[in-house]
Write a protein that binds this DNA or RNA. Structure first.
Lengths: 122, 122
DNA sequence: CAAACAGTTGAACATATGTACAACTGTATT
DNA sequence: AATACAGTTGTACATATGTTCAACTGTTTG
C-alpha cells in the first residue's frame, strides 16, 4: 500500500503526500493551456526578440530600421519577426517596398513590466 | 549620405528612418537588463517548468510529489528545479530526507496571469 | 523592361537545452 | 554499521533553436 510508484507512469518514486498530489492535480489547468503558455514565454525567452518587442513599444518600425538598431542582418530579424507574427505578438503593414511592424497585443507591456519587477529586484 | 549602412556594424542595409532609429535607441533599456529579462522568460518557456511553477502556486511540494504529479523522474524534476532556484523563482526547505519546494516570488502569479490573457484570447 | 532594394524563405551549421542513466550525498531507520 | 530512500549531479545523447548564406519575391524607379 505504501509503494504506489508503479501506478504512476514515468515516476521513479513513491508518492509521499498522496492528498497533496491529488488536490494539486485537480487544480492544474489543462496541459494544452500550459503548453501554449510555455510556447508564449519561449518567444520572450530570446534577447533578440525581447529587444524587437521593446523597440516596437516605442515606435512602429520597418525591418531595416530594426536591423540597424540591433546591429543584425535583415534576414535574422525577419526570421525572428516570423515567430512574433505566429504568436500574434506583432502585426505588419506593407507600404510600397517597406514593411512596417507594430505590436499586436496590449499585454506585451504588462508581461515586460512583471518580468522587470523580478529582474530589477535584489 | 544616403548609404550609412557601413557605419552600422552587422547591419546589411540602409537605415530608412534615421530619426526613428536614433529616438528608439535612446529609449531602449541597457542590453544587460534585456538579457536578464530574456533569461527570466526562458525559464518560463518550458512546459515542465511551467507545470512545476503552476503546481507550487497551489501547494508546497517535495520532489517526489512533483515527479508523481507530472509523471517524470526525480532526476528530470531536480534538474529543472535547479534552473528555478538559480533564477530565484523557487526556494526550498529540508525536513529530514525530504526537500520541500515553494514559490519565491510574488510576481510569478502575475506573469502567469498576463501570459494567460494572451493565450486564452482569440 | 531592367536595375535596385526591402523583405522573405529554405538549407546548413553551430550551439543550447531537456531528459535518461548511473553514480553519488545526506538523512533516517533498524 | 548497514540498509533504505529522497534528492542531486555529471555525462551522454537526441532534439530544438538562432544565425548565416544564398536564392528568391514583390515593389518602385529610371
Amino acid at each position: 500500500m505504501r509503494n504506489n510508484a508503479a501506478e504512476i507512469v514515468g515516476c521513479d518514486c513513491n508518492v509521499i503526500h498522496e492528498e497533496v498530489v491529488a488536490e494539486v492535480r485537480e487544480k492544474m489547468p489543462d496541459d494544452e493551456i500550459l503548453m501554449n503558455l510555455a510556447d508564449l514565454f519561449k518567444v520572450f525567452g530570446d534577447s533578440t526578440r525581447v529587444r524587437i518587442l521593446c523597440a516596437l513599444q516605442h515606435s512602429d518600425m520597418c525591418v531595416c530600421d530594426i536591423a540597424a538598431l540591433l546591429g543584425m542582418t535583415k534576414s535574422a530579424i525577419s526570421h525572428q519577426l516570423r515567430s512574433l507574427r505566429q504568436t500574434r505578438l506583432v502585426k505588419y503593414r506593407r507600404d510600397g517596398k517597406v514593411v512596417y511592424y507594430s505590436l499586436d497585443d496590449e499585454h506585451v507591456g504588462n508581461i515586460f513590466a512583471q518580468g522587470l519587477l523580478h529582474v530589477c529586484e535584489r
